[in-house]
Write a protein that binds this DNA or RNA. Structure first.
Lengths: 217, 217
DNA sequence: ATCGGACGGATCGCATACGATGTCGGGCAG
DNA sequence: CTGCCCGACATCGTATGCGATCCGTCCGAT
């Protein structure tokens, strides 16, 4: 859980609201009323305003002067934009991370992919669990990217995807079998220390295929 | 100039501080004291807090609890990270914009590049003006990108570059002649409706060369 | 002489209070 | 009956004030 000890109130409010939004407790379009939140969390409206402003800067809510804040709604077009952007960014990050991947990173990624393979072939396919593993898989492969700024952008896109996932659409496509195979493909490239261009191309294509499949159906 | 009419005070303060930071009036490392700013702009500290928080979310200042805000400092490593990220993003945006470029866009870009060529060969080379034109050139070529989310990220990186430019380093490298030639190259690809991959590769390489040249010297 | 602790100024963090602004619904004119 | 205007309510925006926290400094003990 988040370290609630000795944080500023505005920070606590921020964490709280963020949690509510990302878990879907506040559905998309939900109207956030400052005074109400303030009373619920037993603080004054001032720190709440600050928290909401931060959420706005992160793109989690929209805020209109003298009107208030609403949890952002995301439609299929937004999904496509974010996913495409993520394809570019994650492709770049993965390719840059390539030369910095230690054997243990590869081992971990391989382990995660194996787990995904098991899940994919299981009779009662658990899409949520699969998605979680998928995220962790790509996280392991991006994390060693030496460009921290780029990595930061990737993280933001992931968060946005998490939000989209719990939002409009029920569950996003998983393409279990195909995904696992593409992952294996990518891992093989990384193991043999392939050229950055190749890694980038494969990683990007992987993401774009997921996107296109969803939009196509 | 910025629409100062009928904006909330926090908005005005935000614009003001942003201006001060980006123009370099507040040098990097400058300590922003809430009460001081509040008195200067004749508002209470509350809106100032909000404005500073927004600047923090944008990465223009760092804020430490019970201590205050400082204008961020950017070193060569940060420059490299941002520039590399921008290379990826701008490459992507330009390639996506390709099919949506109207003749007038290409004409405008060509015009700008011609102006840059004139500037490059002028005896008293004006680096600032050259940089401005360079930004406008790439802006024209990115703007039609249909992925608004990606475009938004590109804009953020541009802002960050603007900040870096006025920051640590005096003036960033311009490579006048080479740049102009590479621009012409890129324009030619766009005119003939080249494949997205090619456009992306050239646009990216152009940016990366600028970066490497600076880091190399 | 050096180190540790206590004091004070500077600054931030938040609660409260009130004025400003937007929204919604009811009443009146057409 | 329908449309417009006005007024009340809900909510936001900001000023003021006070307590909390941090940092630099001075003093005394070792």
């Amino acid at each position: 859980m988040t370290e609630t000890a000795m944080m500023s109130k505005s920070e606590r409010v921020y964490q709280h609201l963020r949690e509510e939004i990302l878990t879907g407790a506040y559905p998309e379009g939900y109207r956030i009323v400052l005074d109400k939140v303030a009373r619920e969390l037993d603080v004054s409206p001032v720190p709440v305003r600050e928290a909401v402003r931060r959420l706005e800067a992160e793109g989690l809510v929209v805020f209109t002067r003298n009107v208030g804040a609403q949890v952002v709604g995301i439609d299929a077009g937004d999904y496509a934009d974010v996913m495409q952007t993520l394809a570019y960014l994650e492709g770049a990050a993965t390719s840059l991370a390539g030369p910095h991947l230690e054997p243990e990173h590869l081992a971990e990624a391989t382990r995660l992919n194996t787990e995904m393979r098991l899940l994919a072939t299981a009779p009662d396919f658990d899409a949520v669990q699969f998605t979680t593993l998928n995220e962790r898989f790509h996280r392991v492969l991006c994390e060693p990217c030496p460009n921290k700024h780029l990595l930061e952008l990737v993280h933001r896109e992931w968060q946005r995807m998490a939000m989209i996932r719990r939002s409009s659409f029920g569950r996003l496509p998983s393409r279990p079998a195909t995904s696992v195979a593409e992952h294996e493909n990518l891992l093989e490239l990384l193991r043999e220390g392939a050229a950055a261009d190749d890694i980038e191309r494969i990683a990007r294509a992987h993401k774009l295929r997921t996107m296109k499949e969803f939009l196509g159906t």
